[in-house]
Design a binder for these strands. Structure first.
Length: 254
DNA sequence: ATGGCTACGATCCGTAGA
């Protein structure tokens, strides 16, 4: 089974690319972020024609998440229970005995800003939520755009990024706290090419220079980590005309 | 030399992303 995550940066703009990619990669589960649209405008019919059902939590202009799957979606849940938030950043579903949580973690804008404080609060709430989900589901996958590059090897130029938002110690510590719950970063279960990233700035020829960050991850509970056979970044969609600034990350689980 | 794209909604620019 293939489980993927992809920050699309607008499903309206990227729908043709998404459909092409689904047809080629044939993932069973896909977590999408930054769909930037409301549920009513979500392209449900086109995705159903491609064989996917969807659970969606969307809003106009910003944020918005969805889970696509080829099998029936049960027990959908949106947001983080007990954490009031206007921003649509979390959706979860159950697929047979697999629980999938799709997250679009806050950007944080700049260290010390209001949005940075929100990001850290948000991670604290996410940790409590995932602790509860782990207690309930032995097969738990948490996939999405975490907006944290966990280590210096996940950063194209650690010197230039030192202390900046996405790599600051408080953010990395908040990210590691998720692993301390018992989750594993599936990407690091395997040998990986040096300088593998999942996001590249649209500016400054970021992709051509491979000036990127690995901020999109698939975290797995112990039972799933045991069954994970691969985790890769698919850079092909980032090479297309008018691409998302993120590439899909794909985990294979047996 | 600190910018440099892109998407969106309401303008002909501001907000946000990372």
């Amino acid at each position: 089974m293939k489980l993927a995550t992809w920050n699309l940066n607008s499903i309206k703009v990227r729908l043709p690319q998404l459909l092409d990619w689904l047809a080629q990669a044939r993932p069973e589960v896909v977590c999408l972020q930054e769909i930037k649209t409301e549920e009513v405008k979500f392209p449900r019919a086109e995705l159903e024609a491609a064989g996917y059902q969807a659970a969606v939590s969307g809003q106009k202009t910003y944020n918005g998440v969805a889970i696509l799957a080829t099998s029936p979606l049960r027990d959908p849940s949106v947001g983080i229970p007990g954490f009031a938030d206007e921003q649509k950043r979390v959706v979860a579903v159950t697929l047979e005995d697999l629980r999938v949580v799709c997250v679009y973690c806050p950007n944080g804008q700049a260290v010390g800003s209001e949005k940075y404080a929100y990001k850290l609060r948000w991670f604290t709430a996410l940790k409590s939520y995932l602790a509860a989900e782990l207690a309930r589901h032995s097969k738990l996958a948490v996939a999405g755009d975490f907006n944290v590059a966990p280590e210096d090897r996940d950063v194209h130029d650690p010197k230039a990024w030192e202390g900046q938002v996405h790599v600051s110690e408080a953010e990395r510590s908040a990210w590691r706290a998720l692993l301390e719950l018992g989750l594993t970063d599936s990407f690091r279960l395997f040998e990986q090419p040096e300088k593998t990233f999942s996001w590249w700035d649209y500016r400054m020829l970021g992709f051509r220079r491979n000036a990127g960050l690995r901020i999109d991850q698939i975290l797995l509970s112990p039972e799933l980590a045991k069954r994970c056979n691969a985790c890769t970044v698919d850079k092909a969609p980032r090479r297309l005309e008018r691409p998302s600034d993120h590439a899909p990350v794909v985990a294979e689980i047996s």
